[in-house]
């Protein structure tokens, strides 16, 4: 790791082996960091504001996706008639990657936040639904029957047996959902936005400002990692029996 940083420094800053117009030196990145960190910032506002806007959008779309995808998956897993009703349409829509919805979202909702929430929602919705469905379908029949024999109502079977047993699958789905939402949001912001981390990247790209591109990418990675880590913590908290 240290080797790489040293190599980076010598090839760019010290010897100019790689032109700093193409790849930034550590000093360039530091300058970019200072510029965007202090008001008036870069690409319209400061980094903190860009980050907050992006995070708000991604969480909003992600939460709506959980609120729609998980119950729908649960319903499809529990009732074969409901599954048969939804599945053909879902199977037809699923192969279209979330990024391909961006132009349609722009036509429908313009370049504002609705379009972004829509595509983020779609990106997160598909994995949330599929994995919840798989989770419900793979619940051990014996457990369900045992609960029934002991007189549990349908509602209690769902609440106390099916949902806890399906939870690991649900969280696998949510992890995939989160990654997909983040990628999709960055793409949507690259296509058109007034603020947000993707907007920083595209403005830096137009300005040919490698230091800022690098710094923006680092933030994309960092925020993605932090959110994944946060979800991991939540997962452990939600399923204490797996520890």
């Amino acid at each position: 790791m240290l080797c790489v940083v040293a190599l980076w420094f010598t090839t760019t800053q010290a010897t100019h082996l790689i032109s700093t117009g193409r790849f930034p030196s550590p000093v360039d990145v530091y300058k970019a960091a200072v510029q965007i960190g202090t008001p008036p910032g870069y690409a319209g506002t400061t980094l903190a504001h860009h980050v907050i806007i992006s995070l708000e959008l991604v969480l909003c779309g992600f939460l709506v996706a959980i609120a729609t995808g998980v119950p729908l998956g649960l319903g499809m897993g529990l009732d074969p008639r409901f599954e048969a009703f939804i599945n053909p349409v879902f199977l037809a829509i699923r192969p279209i990657p979330p990024l391909a919805w961006i132009p349609l979202a722009v036509v429908w909702f313009g370049l504002g936040i609705q379009a972004k929430i829509f595509v983020v929602w779609f990106a997160a919705f598909v994995p949330a639904l599929i994995n919840t469905y798989t989770g419900v379908r793979t619940v051990d029949r014996t457990l369900v029957d045992a609960a029934r024999v002991h007189g549990a109502s349908r509602y209690r079977v769902i609440r106390d047996v099916v949902i806890p047993a399906a939870l690991p699958h649900v969280f696998t789905g949510l992890r995939l959902s989160l990654q997909a939402s983040w990628t999709t949001l960055v793409a949507a912001e690259l296509v058109g936005a007034v603020a947000g981390i993707g907007h920083v990247l595209i403005v830096a790209s137009i300005d040919i400002y490698p230091g800022m591109i690098f710094y923006g990418m680092a933030w994309v990675a960092l925020l993605g990692a932090v959110m994944t880590f946060g979800l991991g913590r939540l997962e452990r908290a939600a399923m204490p029996w797996l520890r």
């Binding site: 595209i202 923006g216 990418m217 994309v220």
Partner: peptide
């Protein structure tokens, strides 16, 4: 962790 699309610039 860098989303592929962030490589665009």
């Amino acid at each position: 962790f860098v989303a592929p699309i962030a490589w665009v610039p």
